[in-house]
């Protein structure tokens, strides 16, 4: 326990505790100063995000051909994208990825956070840091490591399977690939989500636990009826970030492509498709349109998640 006291002390100072005093924002008199405070961020934001985005929108209205130069295409690129089977397959694939990988990852992260918070673990700090560690590993390195471990003939898993006489796991085949990628992403980001959830747990008012203990609730009961409901906002954050991460899936499939190029084709994920279009097919304009549509899908999916969860909490 003593290991955790430092955190607890900081947790006590953390603002989350004081849910009650959401003060009125400060007076209109200082309103103009507010602009000065947000101006630096907004300036960089406009220059680095809004401007390129507007430029991409502009680009998406044209078509540049290798022969014949650039012509105005109107919404031609968009109509092409909406009927492009490779793009649609890619979107379907990342949607599937989201539906399978994210629940698994978040359940592991949640269980780990609850376990570490429960006080029932020996060396809780070791677990907390150990599980979080992969987050500090660049995806370039993560893909390299898992790619080796997945090796079909001489990877450690294949060698172990060989020793016990079992068939080697086929990590890199078409049927397994999405699962193998999901594993890499889970490995990278479970710790990150766990830390968000754990931090939120630390901020749950302590007296609630004591009340529960007085009522005779065990650790599991306390987790189920007090801790998990308290985690709802934090979980929502995790889900929204996962929507964005899943639909933008790029680094891992791109880096794993070398190991199974015929499984991970250029349309494997929508982002990979946009990248290939721009850099391999030299269809920059069409790539811009594809990226825009992908952004729209992400916005819709995020709102869908928000809508479903808020409706359930009202019910």
């Amino acid at each position: 326990m003593s290991v955790d006291t430092a955190d607890r002390r900081l947790g006590a100072r953390a603002p989350g505790r004081s849910q009650g005093h959401r003060q009125r924002r400060h007076g209109v008199t200082h309103g103009r100063t507010g602009y000065l405070f947000v101006a630096p961020f907004m300036l960089v934001f406009v220059a680095m995000l809004v401007l390129p985005l507007a430029y991409a929108a502009y680009l998406s209205l044209f078509q540049e051909r290798l022969i014949g130069g650039t012509v105005f295409a109107g919404i031609g690129n968009y109509t092409r994208a909406l009927t492009d089977p490779r793009l649609l397959h890619g979107v379907g694939r990342v949607a599937l990825f989201f539906l399978i990988q994210v629940p698994i990852m978040l359940v592991i992260a949640l269980l780990a956070a609850l376990a570490i918070d429960s006080g029932l673990l020996r060396v809780a700090k070791l677990f907390r840091l150990g599980i979080f560690l992969p987050y500090a590993v660049p995806s370039v390195v993560a893909a390299l490591m898992w790619g080796y471990l997945y090796g079909r003939d001489f990877g450690p898993f294949a060698q172990l399977a060989d020793k016990v006489g079992a068939a080697a796991p086929k990590f890199l085949t078409p049927d397994w690939m999405l699962g193998s990628l999901a594993n890499v992403v889970t490995w990278e980001f479970t710790g990150y989500n766990m830390i968000i959830l754990y931090a939120a747990l630390r901020a749950v008012p302590h007296d609630l636990y004591e009340a529960a203990a007085v009522d005779g609730a065990g650790a599991i009961r306390t987790a189920w009826s007090i801790k998990i409901p308290a985690l709802r906002p934090a979980l929502l954050i995790c889900v929204i970030f996962s929507v964005i991460g899943s639909f933008q899936l790029f680094n891992e499939p791109q880096l794993m492509q070398r190991l199974a190029p015929s499984v991970i084709d250029s349309g494997y994920t929508p982002n990979l498709y946009a990248y290939t279009l721009a850099f391999t097919g030299q269809e920059v304009n069409y790539a811009a349109a594809v990226s825009f549509l992908l952004g729209a899908v992400i916005v819709i999916a995020s709102y869908a998640v928000l809508f479903i969860t808020t409706r359930r909490s009202r019910a």
């Binding site: 961020f41 907004m42 934001f45 680095m48 995000l49 809004v50 401007l51 390129p52 985005l53 430029y55 991409a56 680009l59 964005i244 639909f247 933008q248 790029f250 929508p270 982002n271 946009a274 990248y275 721009a278 920059v284 790539a287 811009a288 990226s291 825009f292 992908l294 952004g295 992400i298 916005v299 995020s302």
Partner: peptide
């Protein structure tokens, strides 16, 4: 607007940013 920008795919930005 800033929060909404989290959802912009990175590849959508890379090429126009490069050109700019």
């Amino acid at each position: 607007a800033v929060l909404g920008a989290i959802m912009v795919p990175t590849t959508a930005l890379a090429i126009p940013t490069y050109l700019l």
